[in-house]
Design a protein around this nucleic acid. Sequence first.
DNA 1: GGCGAATATCTTGCTCAACGAGATAATAAG
DNA 2: CTTATTATCTCGTTGAGCAAGATATTCGCC
Lengths: 156, 156
Amino acid sequence: MQPDRAQPDLELVHLLRATAVELGLHSSRFAQQNGMHPTDVRALIALMDARRAGEETTAGRLGATLGLNSAGTTALLDRLERAGHVRRVRAASDRRKVVVEVTDGAVGLGWAFFGPLIERSVELLRGYDAHQRAAIREFLDGVREAAAEGGHTAPG
Amino acid sequence: MQPDRAQPDLELVHLLRATAVELGLHSSRFAQQNGMHPTDVRALIALMDARRAGEETTAGRLGATLGLNSAGTTALLDRLERAGHVRRVRAASDRRKVVVEVTDGAVGLGWAFFGPLIERSVELLRGYDAHQRAAIREFLDGVREAAAEGGHTAPG
DNA sequence: GGCGAATATCTTGCTCAACGAGATAATAAG
DNA sequence: CTTATTATCTCGTTGAGCAAGATATTCGCC
């Protein structure tokens, strides 16, 4: 297991890592441009993912997804609400619960920033045939699973 | 540009993002298992990358890479040195500079944790032909470049 | 060779995200 | 109606990172 084998496959693995890093930095820029912290962006993404899946997100569930304790989750929601990115709504069914709703403004902000990147990615994918897309899908899914082994943070 | 189009290409973009997130969480677990913070792991990775490329890394250069100011960089190096992951060595040519060296222990720690994931990734890649690998490489590289482009402006 | 400017790192004092512990409010069980 | 459970919030503390400035080394100039 030498660290420096000039192997084409290893180069691709490094490229995947570099891409992951660059995506993280892209999110950081979004955070900084809007006076937010990385955690705030992660929270908004988690909330939008849940919304896309048609699920309600409570404060506790969001905190668990992000790996925050209750105090941190409260502070996070305070920041996001103060900035107008989310609304706290007491659940009608169980009034202990606080359902977190993303505002339209935050959704628009996210699309304006991440939209171009997503569109560019889709455009890139159009250039490949079914065989190639299957390879991309399988490779990414395989790496994702391998990385997820040994500790699970429940997705939304 | 609706957020919820059930489009195969969009699914692949989401998969890439999910993979990037999972790789980030994998690094976080490494950090937590070794009593480190995310920044410390980023620093070690940057140092090992530089070493792989045969470059010396000074304190200032490392801080610039990570986006830390000098105070933060000093504190980071204090943590890493206290934990035995790096050594500070005054450069012989310019004794103002501090060259940061990763210890063998830290390298071993990193390989023990990230090695299996890298090997699994290489193994996955062996299953694809040149055509498919080219697609993976081009797609990842294209997304990386798109994400690296700074000029995305959010609406006011 | 000595002096001031430039460079690289470290020190000090502060801010704020996140933690632990526990309070408060609402629901569920007996 | 009383007690246990669940969901969120409050209070006090820790520590990563920042801004500003101190310290140490090198370079340019004469």
